[in-house]
């Protein structure tokens, strides 16, 4: 499979389905692993780095998961392809911009993405739409066991799985859920909720994960503690309390908005739709900001010009790298803004 083909598919996690999908956009679970007997990447020589890459990629290709998966060599891939993978949430920005021997193995439905030689030798990431923490963790865990049956991962009786950064030791797990919280943002309750989440040792990030600001109405919430609790316990804390709690706040805020300020809400939704349908130039940020009220409108059953899969597709394909891939030409900022507006109009007309 070539990278260009990705633009014709919509990642599993963007299908817009799954439990609590009105608020929870997607779930991801990653497990950090390192090969025993090799230095971490900060201290690895080029030849050690290449060897780690070779051992891991060969082992992945040989296990059942690897048969339908595609390995992308990021040292070979051009900048646009790497950016495309960031936009699809398959690799981190850090991984895209890194140097040296590194790559990613992506499963057929894009439900699994294994980063090779990112901060750790291996990061197994499971992805899905909606709220499916335990399902995604089990899948990532299964692949970890498949690989771990043949590879020795660095492990310590006290610290568990050893990682380059001590904040990831133990289980090496990070659970993240992407939440869409437009109503809490509108009612300005969001700060209070996010502060409470931070106090519960959760990290809040933006749409593209680590190192990105929480901007707009999308927030990625993840655990910071990976030691002293089992993987199942960490997953359960998301399923049992953290996420349902925030989802409930958002739903209550939406209901209250609809009941007390329905007209203003509809006005906001339709103005956003009007701009998207008429604009001649538009940035990625403005596109995403305008799609946000439409998503809320769809989930509240107040807006029917679009459905979630079509909205998600516009969201995905209007990002800079995707847009250039879809149109098959390289465009600078100004030309891209115009091309993006044309693309959105054509999608909304059809």
């Amino acid at each position: 499979m070539k990278l260009g083909d990705f633009t014709r598919m919509t990642g599993e996690w963007l299908r817009g389905e799954g439990p609590l999908a009105d608020v929870v956009v997607s779930t991801r679970v990653r497990l950090a692993r390192n090969l025993a007997g090799y230095p971490f990447l900060t201290r690895a020589s080029d030849s050690e780095r290449t060897e780690i890459y070779r051992i891991l990629s060969e082992r992945i290709a040989a296990c059942p998961f690897g048969r339908d998966a595609v390995l992308v060599d990021l040292e070979e891939a051009d900048a646009l392809d790497r950016e495309l993978l960031v936009e699809r949430h398959l690799i981190s920005k850090q991984h895209a911009e890194g140097a040296g021997s590194r790559g990613v193995t992506i499963s057929a439905g894009e439900t699994m993405a294994l980063m090779l030689n990112e901060e750790d030798h291996l990061r197994i990431q499971g992805l899905s739409c909606g709220m499916q923490v335990e399902e995604v963790w089990r899948e990532a865990d299964r692949i970890d066991s498949e690989l771990g049956a043949h590879l020795d991962f660095a492990f310590d009786c006290q610290f568990g799985f050893l990682t380059a950064c001590p904040t990831n030791v133990g289980t090496g797990i990070r659970v993240s859920v992407m939440l869409h919280l437009p109503a809490l943002k509108l009612t300005q309750e969001i700060e209070r909720i996010l502060r409470a989440a931070r106090d519960m040792h959760l990290a809040i990030r933006g749409l593209y994960g680590e190192g990105t600001e929480a901007a707009g109405d999308f927030f990625q919430i993840s655990n910071q503690t990976s030691l002293g609790k089992t993987e199942a316990e960490l997953a359960r804390s998301f399923v049992d309390s953290i996420v349902p709690r925030i989802v409930e706040y958002e739903r209550v805020a939406r209901t209250a908005l609809a009941r007390t300020r329905g007209q203003q809400l509809d006005d906001k939704i339709w103005r956003a739709y009007g701009t998207l349908a008429q604009a001649r130039m538009i940035s990625t940020e403005e596109t995403q900001a305008l799609l946000s009220p439409l998503r809320m409108g769809i989930c509240m059953d107040r807006f029917h010009e679009l459905d979630l899969p079509r909205l998600n597709e516009i969201f995905l394909l209007t990002q800079p790298a995707h847009l250039q891939k879809v149109l098959d030409k390289s465009l600078d900022g100004q030309a891209r803004a115009a091309a993006r507006a044309d693309f959105i109009r054509s999608r909304l007309e059809s």
Partner: peptide, 16 residues
């Protein structure tokens, strides 16, 4: 960094 925890209690590698 881990809310007071100093001991791993999760998964043990298959080959340990």
């Amino acid at each position: 960094a881990h809310e007071g925890a100093t001991q791993h209690v999760g998964k043990v590698p298959v080959r340990a």
